[in-house]
Design a binder for these strands. Structure first.
Lengths: 249, 249
DNA sequence: GAGTGTGAATCAATTCACAGCT
DNA sequence: AGCTGTGAATTGATTCACACTC
């Protein structure tokens, strides 16, 4: 579910950025991040080893998939025992490129952007917010979480100067493409897009999209599929006492 | 990339909630929401028809996929002409269950939750925020976007009473599972989870997860893959003048 | 002529199942 | 005895390519 690389029909049968080896599937990369979260918790609790079964349950996947994922990153557990937690943490972090921090620029300090900027989780997990941008004169010059908001026109210089490698676009839809272009000009090659638009980027730039409206509508689909076309459970509906399934924890 | 339904090994080879027909693949549903956004724009511009080629370009997919998606929802364009925009909007909305509004409950009015509650986009797109919850006494009783924040303990009653069909969890990780349980008890069967945890839910409840840390780490992976293990372009790096690809717009 | 609808082919991801190590 | 690592089988999604309709 990536959204970079535009159609570009016809010609060019060769992948332009195939540097020779891409052994880790997209889907696996996303799951590695999930495993990592569980693993760091385990590490904090002082656990020495985990079995694929246990780790998989905590990450919400099945154990075969987990083992395949881990084997893809060249990791080696010990048969009959499991995986060494701290070693696995190190390996996953290395694969995800988390051994060095990645400076992040966040563009659009409105409702959502402001919350993201103030959210400590970024810096904590190795993604220090190195720059904030907006076009609103009322916001430019203010400080959020210790970082000053600068004018979006300065993106190319400021980002290049501070070694920004990841850009976060949290602007309204109409501004998003221009902002994206600025980021690309600054050399940013990874972009997280919260704006409800498809961004056009040159090959070699990775865009990931988070779209709240899409998520809600997918849920809406599932609601509709359940209840047929009936509006919803009426206000007088008795709440069902559905006990949740047992899973690890 | 769904995350509901826990492992549940061994037995039960039959899907417990297969009501007889599930013709629309998950992946298609997510794309329908994207098409819909483009279509409403087109409709607002007064366009009568679109070709699969044009619509696909604007949505960032290829035309064959788009046609297959649309054919799956039983839609019928006109050969040699294209699709009737307003009719297609109606069909996609019907498929996604958007013909009626879905009352949403948002739990956790901290940093992110507050921004989500204040974000008008929800109500606008047919997802009115019917209830807000938190456990912080300093927040309970305050009003955000015209909705009063209530204590999380009242979730089961309030949600059932107001016919909430979709729950949004924006609490810290440790609280998420309990909140989720409350929502399920209230009869909510679709949950959007922003907390960095895997939620355990009974079969029949759909969970979608938005995890910022995961998104960032996936981007980190791509940064690392590009630059080898080199930290990043230094502060003195010349910004490359990479022109973006041409795509519709 | 233009553009949809769709079987068939391809590609990617998941799951199975078991050999092999400790 | 227990649990990993992985080929083979399967399932699912994407793309191709062309018959068919307006």
């Amino acid at each position: 579910m990536r959204s970079a690389r535009a159609p570009e029909d016809g010609l060019a049968p060769v992948d332009p950025d195939d540097t020779g080896s891409r052994p880790v599937p997209e889907a696996t990369v996303a799951r590695l991040a999930v495993y990592l979260r569980v693993l760091t918790t385990l590490l904090a609790e002082g656990r020495g080893t985990v079995s694929s079964e246990e780790l998989a349950a905590a990450a919400g996947v099945n154990s075969a998939k987990l083992r395949k994922d881990l084997s893809l990153i060249g990791s080696s557990g010990v048969r009959g025992v499991g995986y060494d937690v701290s070693r696995l943490v190190a390996e996953v972090e290395a694969t995800l490129g988390l051994t060095r921090p990645h400076a992040v620029a966040l563009v659009g300090v409105g409702n959502l952007g402001h919350a993201l900027a103030g959210y400590g989780g970024f810096a904590q997990r190795g993604f220090p917010v190195a720059a904030l941008f907006d076009v609103d004169p009322a916001l430019v010059g203010t400080t959020i979480g210790g970082v000053e908001v600068e004018h979006a026109d300065t993106i190319p210089w400021v980002c290049a100067e501070r070694g920004v490698t990841i850009g976060v676009v949290a602007t309204p839809a109409p501004a998003a493409q221009q902002v994206c272009d600025h980021l690309v000009t600054a050399g940013v090659r990874s972009i997280l897009n919260f704006a409800p638009t498809v961004l056009a980027v040159p090959a070699g730039v990775e865009v990931r999209k988070v779209d709240l409206a899409v998520e809600m509508q997918v849920l809406s689909f599932h609601v509709a599929r359940r209840h047929g076309t009936v509006p919803a459970a009426g206000p007088t509906a008795t709440p069902r006492q559905t006990p949740r399934e047992a899973v690890s924890r």
